[in-house]
Simulated assay, not measured.
Amino acid sequence: MPFIWNPDLDTGIDVIDQQHRRIVDYINALEIANAAGDRDEIGRTLDDLVDYTVSHFAFEESLQEEAGYTFCKPHKRVHELFVRRVNEYVERHRLGDDVGSELYKLLSTWLVNHIKRDDADYVAAVKANMIGIIAEKRQRKDNGWLSRFFRR
């Protein structure tokens, strides 16, 4: 059964929500490969999922750091533990274990819980920082030489 994106999972930060939806696409591709019994495709999908998730985590952590999010380090630790856990499944798969359905359950459950709990905690700080950056850029733009020239 495919993982269906639920709007309750939206953080309100478009780039993060798009990345989360992409992770859901990988989870669903894994389920399709598992249902087909295609071990090679399961392996490729797992590799792609891990690579994409690691880059997503790095991006998310950079937003948190830039925003001065208080719990950035513990959040990063949660990411590290998750990657380690998924890599254990990848290794088991490479050794011949059938981990597809077990991994699908882990990924879909973890993602929902992580978004609703851990990610929800940083959203306010990151949004406030983004709004501040946009306001600062507008201010600089409004104070540029061209805008000053036309205000005269």
Rank of each mutant, 00 (worst) to 15 (best):
G100D: 02
I131V: 14
V54S: 02
A58T: 04
E65F: 05
R117V: 13
G68Q: 07
I23E: 09
H79P: 01
Q19N: 05
Q64F: 00
F59E: 06
G100Y: 01
G96H: 04
I27H: 05
K127F: 14
E61C: 01
A33L: 05
K105M: 12
M1P: 12
D14V: 09
A120I: 04
D98M: 01
W145M: 13
L95M: 01
A125N: 08
D38F: 10
A33E: 03
R39Y: 03
F57M: 02
V123E: 03
E61L: 03
Y52Q: 04
E88H: 05
K137V: 07
I115L: 13
A36Y: 06
A124P: 02
N6T: 12
I133F: 07
H79D: 03
V15P: 01
V54N: 00
S101W: 07
I32Y: 13
E102G: 06
Q64V: 00
D17P: 09
R138I: 06
F3M: 12
Q139T: 09
E88R: 13
L146Y: 12
F149G: 04
E80L: 03
E65A: 13
I13F: 06
S147F: 03
R84K: 03
E88M: 11
L9M: 15
N113R: 06
L103N: 05
D121I: 06
L63W: 00
A35Q: 14
N87S: 09
E65T: 12
L81W: 02
H114P: 12
E102S: 11
G144T: 11
R22S: 11
H20R: 09
I131D: 13
V86K: 08
K116Q: 14
Q18D: 15
R138V: 07
T70H: 04
L46K: 12
W145A: 15
S108K: 14
N87G: 11
N143R: 11
F82A: 04
H20Q: 08
H114L: 11
R92M: 07
E91G: 02
L111P: 11
E66G: 07
D142A: 15
I131C: 01
S147K: 13
